[in-house]
Design a protein around this nucleic acid. Structure first.
Lengths: 108, 108
DNA sequence: ATTGTATATCGTAAATATACGATAATAGTT
DNA sequence: AACTATTATCGTATATTTACGATATACAAT
């Protein structure tokens, strides 16, 4: 037979799936885009820009933070969110390798 | 105010989220990896390699096909699945632009 | 201390995703 | 036609995600 049946998924596969899960909602794509184009923002400012209630935006921010895509910095009364560049680049690279859209020896 | 509240997400945001959704499960990551590393395979061969039942694998293949990540080619009795390179590269590029991990003028 | 502002968390309803046994559909074989 | 092999679909149970009102928490200002 061509393959041997695996019993479980690898850590790497789970990590990549989790990264993709972070981006698997238009609101979270929108948040990343807004932060990329306008710089760091507070939760309140993002609520203004998105068609969602404050708790919902907060929930999305939590997912992005826990996924390592965003950084949160206390700023007096409020919290400013920004893109976690390094981590995003790292995941993107893993992704490209997995998807075979980058030259890494194996090619496709 | 910094933003005007949008009523809906853009077509582009939804498309990228859908692409990410396709990759937001370890089994689908594993399928892509297997096809990339071993070339085109049948559903049955993938069932052998994965810790999932045949209907579940078939369901994942359907999701990947409908998301444009895989191609299906009838081959006698069976169906051979392969990676839809062009489409994956296209989505990856959109992704990179959105995430700001590629030089496109805007930078981050 | 009290008030106001900003954000997170709780509780929960509704929608979506996941997995798989049972079964249908399709195509090759005898 | 009957049988076999391969894949898809159905039905459904369970888990996860999503959204938001209500409420709690944290901090600044008065």
């Amino acid at each position: 037979m061509a393959f041997s049946k695996s019993n479980i998924f690898t850590r790497e596969q789970i990590a990549l799936a989790d990264f993709a899960k972070c981006l698997a909602h238009p609101a979270r794509i929108a948040i990343i885009t807004l932060l990329k184009e306008h710089g760091d923002r507070t939760c309140g400012e993002l609520v203004e820009a998105l068609p969602l209630a404050q708790p919902t935006v907060s929930q999305h921010l939590k997912a992005l933070r826990e996924g390592g895509l965003l950084l949160a910095e206390n700023h007096g009364n409020s919290i400013r969110y920004s893109i976690n560049c390094e981590n995003i680049k790292h995941f993107c690279h893993s992704f490209q390798c997995t998807l075979g859209t980058v030259a890494d020896g194996a090619g496709i």
